[in-house]
Design a protein around this nucleic acid. Sequence first.
DNA 1: GTCTATATCCGGATAGAC
DNA 2: GTCTATCCGGATATAGAC
Lengths: 194, 194
Amino acid sequence: MAGSKGDTRERIARAAGTLFRRQGYSATGLQQIAAESRTRIGSIYHFFPGKDALAEDVVRTGGAAYGAMVLALLENGPDDPVEALGAAFAQAADDLAASDYADACPIATIALEVASTNDPLRRATADVFTAWLDALASWCRRIVTDPDAAHDLATAILTSLEGAFILSRALRDPAPLLAAGRSLTRLATAMRTD
Amino acid sequence: MAGSKGDTRERIARAAGTLFRRQGYSATGLQQIAAESRTRIGSIYHFFPGKDALAEDVVRTGGAAYGAMVLALLENGPDDPVEALGAAFAQAADDLAASDYADACPIATIALEVASTNDPLRRATADVFTAWLDALASWCRRIVTDPDAAHDLATAILTSLEGAFILSRALRDPAPLLAAGRSLTRLATAMRTD
DNA sequence: GTCTATATCCGGATAGAC
DNA sequence: GTCTATCCGGATATAGAC
């Protein structure tokens, strides 16, 4: 009964997530979200108190889903974790190009827009980034056993990915993502403890 | 005669640059830019054909200035270029915290906002990023002689910086910038050709 | 739960007085 | 070169019919 595929609330959240990711938070109007999700503004207000609350929901649930996807990509990749890292960046480059350089990180644009202007939303992005870092750091212990070193490596992975997303989208070129992947495998190899 | 300090056109451009950097492009209204630069909307339209043109000017000239500043920071730092790299990231962390996590990259937020929606502005950000990469790659040849390797290192530096800016702003914590700096000095050391 | 109508406000942009 | 007045569209949000 619940959770049918065409669930209105979910259609709204998914459309909002797509638009926020591609155009940012303030450039996206509720009108556009309603059109994209084939509903009306009234329905959006039926499920969410307002635009900020909708965005917070999108950031938290969409962020969790994206983190899970990336981690699954790493865990289902090559057995050698350093190779898996390079493969994941190559996959990210492919996916980005396939979406015509539109769909990169689901929360990065929002994070930059709200960092100095909307504290509840800023906190939502911070919580998502922190959860990603923790999950990544745990995975990184396959490469380095020391927890602090693993956390540094996780930070390097995430910052490189986020920065490369910016450059690849702006240049419409997968090269920055691929270069970041190469540098990261070099770094991981240098840090490796066997 | 020309170029007096209080030049209206420059006041407008500087105010726009500050606001775009902190809040993004679409969240910033011409009204706000006029207030911040102590002018009127009419004056903005006297100097710029419209908001897009103003933003393109801000991206190109502000981007060039920022790139020059970062390069000067690297060249006036410690003699050892690898040490200079770490020092530059530490400096970036200090500056960001001093601005209450507001003033990071002057074009990153705009770049993400316009990448899929405004091609002239997207090109402006791409041109700035490309110029930064070229200048950085040239500097990197103090560490690695091979041009391709130097370009990869330059890409790693810029993507790490941009990604760390996102995380540090969202978390209101210099730690990501400092961790990125550590990882980058490790990478540069591993790539070093002496 | 869905949709329409509307209130209120602010966006970018233009014309023209001074 | 500066400033005011104004146009028009779209923004978020609310009230209420069905």
